[in-house]
């Protein structure tokens, strides 16, 4: 199982802070597709940055069961 986190505007648009996907192995790119399929209103899933296990990761990154994937919309701390 892979756990996927949403924050800020994406969390509000999804109506939930997280979702899970029962799959052994996939890629960040496929996770974007899965999220768009599950929450069609989450158009940010197309281009928001992603982090795998709390490190920024690109579309080709492999994601395995037990990993966490977070969508990171443009940050605005400080």
């Amino acid at each position: 199982m892979i756990t996927i986190y949403f924050f800020a505007g994406m969390k509000e648009a999804a109506g939930t802070p997280q979702m899970t996907w029962e799959i052994e192995e996939t890629t960040v790119k496929n996770i974007r597709e899965k999220v768009k399929e599950t929450y069609p209103q989450l158009h940010q899933a197309e281009f928001a940055m992603t982090a795998v296990n709390e490190e920024f990761a690109g579309n080709d990154e492999t994601v395995r069961t037990g990993d966490t994937v977070a969508f990171i919309p443009p940050v605005s701390g400080g």
């Binding site: 800020a8 505007g9 509000e12 982090a51 690109g58 990171i72 940050v75 605005s76 701390g77 400080g78």
Partner: peptide, 29 residues
């Protein structure tokens, strides 16, 4: 740093992003 700010005004509220006006990040972040 993954921190986000939501501004609350008299007439509404909004999540603020892209304060550095970067149009896009490269794939690696």
């Amino acid at each position: 740093v993954p921190i986000w700010k939501k501004e609350h005004w008299e007439d509404g509220s909004e999540w603020i992003g892209d304060q550095l006006e970067q149009t896009a990040y490269n794939e690696k972040g």
